[in-house]
Amino acid sequence: MDRFSLTPDLSFSRIVYGMWRLGDDTDTSPAHVQAKVEACLAQGITTMDQADIYGGYTAEALLGAALKSAPSLRARIELVTKCDIIAPVGRHAGARVKHYDTSAAHITAAVETSLREMATDRIDLLLIHRPDPLMDAEETGRALDALVASGKVLSVGVSNFRPWDVSLLQSAMHTRLATNQIEISLTEPAPFTNGDLAFLQERKVPVMAWSPLGGGSLFSGSNPPLLAALERIAADYEVDVTAVAVAWLLRHPARIIPVMGTNRLDRIARFHEAMKVVMDRQTWFELYTLAIGKEVP
């Protein structure tokens, strides 16, 4: 598995395992969570993507239980997590309304909770999960810089930010924002033309892609011509059809890092197949054309 450097001190596997569905599995035992991590490691996938809100604020602890059961795993993986979403469930059940909190106090407390839940002494990458309309960039920036200086967080970034949100926060920070994790897939191709990818490429900021398979909607029959093309290419390479959709993202010069989420061990074991697919320019545009439903201008 190829690797990609986000900062001089941090590299990620080219494909990341997303754990947002970890709490939805019928088996959430430490042994089963460990089996998922081991299935990733067997392919060279070392980066695990979390968020405090995943599983109604339960997913971090599920991973933490596995790391307590098998402490040697921690040194073999990179941990990503996110904060700032407060939903009225779990530990925030008393909240009157779902909201965002990018105050220094909340970010600092969230990091302490994530460290405890995941049974680790550091977070490799902390992301602000959603843009906060009430964000005080100076306060948020100072808090993120302080966390990096403390060693509790190795690097910081954002998620779901638009270019102007990234610029605002970065303007108030000494630490370089390491990434923006945004939704990109054949069902969500807008970032290729709305300026999101261009902005990040210009600044040489790596891009992480959540829901790279459109939450499974690619395979629901909502776009039969696109699915047929994916199946044809998959047959040519003798890979799972999902590998073609991921290879389409990997082909882009922004060096997109897909975040793959599933609870099925058989599907996890096949993540690496995307690296086998050679996506030439015309094939990329064939899929793009089918995705947007029209010929390019």
Rank of each mutant, 00 (worst) to 15 (best):
F4Q: 15
T7H: 10
P8R: 02
L10I: 14
S11R: 13
S11V: 11
S13F: 00
V16F: 04
G18Y: 00
R21K: 12
D24V: 06
D27H: 02
H32I: 10
H32F: 14
E38D: 14
L41K: 03
T46S: 14
T47F: 00
M48T: 05
M48I: 15
Q50P: 02
I53V: 15
Y54C: 00
G56P: 06
G56R: 07
A59T: 11
E60I: 01
L67I: 12
L67N: 03
P71C: 00
S72I: 13
V80N: 12
C83T: 14
P88G: 04
Y100K: 13
Y100D: 08
H106Y: 15
I107R: 01
T108R: 12
V111H: 05
L115V: 06
R116W: 13
T120Y: 06
D121Q: 13
D124R: 09
I128G: 03
I128F: 10
H129T: 06
P131H: 08
P133G: 11
D136A: 09
E138M: 07
R142C: 04
R142V: 08
L144I: 07
A149G: 01
A149C: 03
G151I: 07
K152T: 04
V153N: 08
V156M: 10
G157D: 00
G157N: 03
V158Y: 07
S159I: 10
N160L: 01
F161H: 03
W164A: 11
D165V: 10
Q170Y: 00
Q170I: 05
Q170L: 05
H174V: 09
H174I: 11
H174A: 13
T175Y: 10
R176H: 12
I182W: 04
S185W: 13
L186D: 02
T187C: 10
N194M: 08
A198V: 00
F199I: 12
L200E: 09
V205H: 04
P206M: 02
A209C: 08
S211G: 09
P212H: 04
L213E: 06
P224C: 13
P225K: 12
L226G: 03
A228H: 07
A229K: 11
A234V: 00
D236R: 12
D236P: 06
V239M: 00
A243F: 02
A243S: 02
A243Q: 09
A243M: 03
W248R: 15
L249H: 07
L250P: 02
L250M: 07
R255C: 02
I257E: 01
P258E: 03
V259R: 01
M260F: 09
G261E: 13
N263C: 10
D266K: 11
R267D: 07
I268L: 06
I268N: 09
A269F: 01
A269W: 05
E273Q: 15
K276T: 12
K276S: 12
D280F: 11
R281C: 12
R281I: 14
T283N: 05
F285N: 02
L287C: 15
Y288G: 03
A291Q: 07
I292F: 04
V296D: 11
V296S: 13
P297D: 14
